[in-house]
Nucleic acid binder design. Sequence first.
DNA 1: TCTGCAATTTTGATTAGTCAAAATCATGTT
DNA 2: AACATGATTTTGACTAATCAAAATTGCAGA
Lengths: 237, 237
Amino acid sequence: MTRRLDLSHSKRHHDLTMPTSTVEDYLKQLYLEQQSASADLVPMGKLASAMGVVPGTATSMVKALADSGLVTYEPRSGARLTKGGEQLALHVLRRHRLVELFLVKILGLDWSEVHDEAEELEHAISEKVLDRIDALLDYPRVDPHGDPIPPAKGKMPGTRQFSLLDCDLNAPLRVARVIDQGPAFLQFVHRSGLSIGTPLTVESRDPQAAAVSIAVAGKPPVALGTEAASKIFVEAV
Amino acid sequence: MTRRLDLSHSKRHHDLTMPTSTVEDYLKQLYLEQQSASADLVPMGKLASAMGVVPGTATSMVKALADSGLVTYEPRSGARLTKGGEQLALHVLRRHRLVELFLVKILGLDWSEVHDEAEELEHAISEKVLDRIDALLDYPRVDPHGDPIPPAKGKMPGTRQFSLLDCDLNAPLRVARVIDQGPAFLQFVHRSGLSIGTPLTVESRDPQAAAVSIAVAGKPPVALGTEAASKIFVEAV
DNA sequence: TCTGCAATTTTGATTAGTCAAAATCATGTT
DNA sequence: AACATGATTTTGACTAATCAAAATTGCAGA
């Protein structure tokens, strides 16, 4: 067994060393998973595939995270971020999203390609640099995909957003957020004229056809499959 | 022994996988060491202390680098970058220095604190982002310390620079470069009014006193010890 | 030539992260 | 209640990077 006998007199975890970028990634993923998949206990399978590792790896990583007090781990059911873990996750997310916005606004990259760039940068950026970027962008609250940027301190603002599958029919709405960050999907969204901020209404939803019909002012209606529709979020205007 | 028997049929090294950031750091350091310490064969001791590791670590790392064809290694004397290793080193240096300049010019950080920031960022930045930064800065050739920025392709420009110990006396000169990147030294340089670009002349050099006397237009002369003087480079105006 | 020291290399361990594959478990059928 | 099945956990191995400490070596000076 590898249950290394912790020589540190202590009974308390809380490893005050800077988290590795791998740890940051796990925490971030755990947070995102907790958000979307209503169940707040993330199963190892989900986590593993989100991280692109085999399940065993996720298990052992989560156990380590539990040892440092960042998550609670319930064997055979899943893991949940602790208060501390969540803070760290939000911090990482903040870096990620500010960097994305920076890449688009200041360096002029395309919003469909910034996700991967930010994935790297988010671990290399210091607090000081982050603050400068925040200021340079004039303290934004959402990133280029419409995802909210966690504030430096304080809770995430609760917005009333619904996917195209859940929102009201024929009500004036606006595209607020696109969940899938894959370049292909983002480009499709762009082609369909559904960028963040675009006003629209949902004309109809047909469970049988598994499709929704979207009306964007002036243009012919667009049909989306439920798959795609579930990844686009809107809010009331 | 750990002489892992290379199963790969090949007799040629050249590992086409992306170098780890540790490897990048070793190459960069090797390059810098080769530049300054005239001897182009860098001894393990030098490298180890530059990298902040024990000598044994440097030895084994260099052997690995030699296996991938990035350096040539002569046991008990030292290592030298190969053509390929040098290219990679220059690439890293280019990233480092462009990032530094970016941090100063665009984000408004102080030139004395930018070095450590860049140390992290240089490994996380993609080619595309680097190009944008390069353009945004209008293709600069020197970083905030006066160090030349290696061009994307092509050789480093050969400038005629001398340290305050080697340059002509009473000739019109300009501060071109400061070697020591420690915040303390950089702040001292700044206090003494010797920022990059400042015009000056060297009035006298006294080997006995181990000091040189610098005249900056309008101000009273400044005396520098040889230690400090050797770290400030000037070029003819 | 012989010695002694300082630099270098070896050896053996350790840590973080990972995979492959075998062992366990929890459940929803029959 | 007995199983089959799919998810989870274990085990054992491996790589990159590192350190501590012991073993080598190359020379400079007596």
